[in-house]
């Protein structure tokens, strides 16, 4: 499978701030690649450079076999869903899609556009101005315009954020459908569960660099050599109490997070789990449940910061 995006030492500096600091990345044809990172990590900056919205400071990239110097030559093959605040609010929905379609070289008729609006769940909103659309409707029309002109690479910046669960599921289905049609998809999201479910590979961006890269399973398995344990006790164990108690223990316990009534901790070795349960009971806690916790992408993300 050939690479559809090749990025080498790509960097972006705004004033004296390095937002991206030498990104190296390849994305293969036909894969769904998920990009995650905290706010300000540089996800949007990266996408904006790939799509020609902002200029690079240094480095290079190749997209659909064309160098960044000739990006104009492949724009018709790239569908981009930028932030929804970039829409022409004064236009009617159908008018907006037809205009974007013409710019993308789409040859649909007016009836085809009406059918497209129905397909994306905007039936009846064709003649409404976009400024009167709800947040979810704006998201949908923003995604629809990215698909005009039958692009082979689709770049979606947080396509499901702020959507109701049903709409988000529909968009995830759409992404899977697009992949089955042979399209390559690069998406960013704050929804780590979503990225985990639909991405073939994931990149975690932090401090202007790709800190981790691999399939969701690879990342979850390789994140730490420590064992994660979820514990449910009465009274509920707090991080403060754990720190107090563990100061006197002869093994290391690291608090990770709390999940509902559970406390998640990391321990270095198998036999530390037995020691942990013994110490908790010895300290007066009733131990209701103790189970091995599988790493989630969220854990990987938190550990990569």
């Amino acid at each position: 499978m050939k690479n559809i995006i090749n990025v080498a030492q790509l960097a972006k500096r705004f004033g004296t701030t390095d937002v991206l600091n030498g990104i190296d990345l390849t994305i293969q044809e036909g894969e769904v690649f998920g990009f995650i990172g905290h706010n300000g990590a540089g996800k949007s900056t990266f996408i904006n450079m790939l799509t020609g919205i902002i200029n690079k400071s240094s480095g290079s990239f190749e997209i659909i076999g064309t160098s960044d110097q000739q990006l104009d030559d492949v724009k018709a093959k790239i569908g981009v869903m930028p932030d929804i605040s970039n829409l022409y609010d004064h236009m009617k929905g159908i008018q907006f899609l037809r205009y974007m379609g013409k710019l993308a070289g789409d040859t649909r008729t007016k009836q085809d556009y009406i059918a497209l609006m129905k397909d994306i769940g905007l039936e009846g909103a064709e003649k409404k101005k976009i400024k009167a659309y709800s947040f979810g409707m704006k998201k949908k029309i923003s995604i629809a315009q990215a698909l005009l002109g039958n692009p082979s690479l689709i770049i979606l910046d947080e396509p499901t954020s702020g959507l109701d669960p049903e709409s988000a599921i529909n968009i995830r289905k759409l992404i899977v459908d697009l992949q089955q049609q042979g399209k390559t998809i690069l998406l960013t999201s704050h929804n780590l569960d979503e990225i985990d479910k639909i991405s073939d590979r994931v990149g975690i961006l932090s401090d202007g660099k790709v800190k981790k890269l691999g399939t969701p399973d690879e990342l979850k398995n390789n994140t730490s050599s420590e064992l994660s344990v979820a514990i449910r006790t009465n009274p509920t164990l707090t991080s403060q109490k754990l720190a107090e108690l563990s100061a006197n223990w002869d093994f290391n316990v690291q608090f990770v997070t709390t999940k509902k009534k559970y406390v998640v901790v990391n321990v270095p070795h198998d036999n530390d789990i037995a020691k942990l349960s013994k110490e908790l009971i010895h300290s007066g806690f009733q131990l209701f449940e103790l189970r091995m916790e599988q790493q989630s992408l969220e854990d990987v993300f938190i550990n990569s910061k």
Partner: peptide, 9 residues
């Protein structure tokens, strides 16, 4: 920021 839609096309 509608220019962002245009420059991607």
């Amino acid at each position: 920021r509608t220019i962002r839609l245009l420059v991607t096309k």
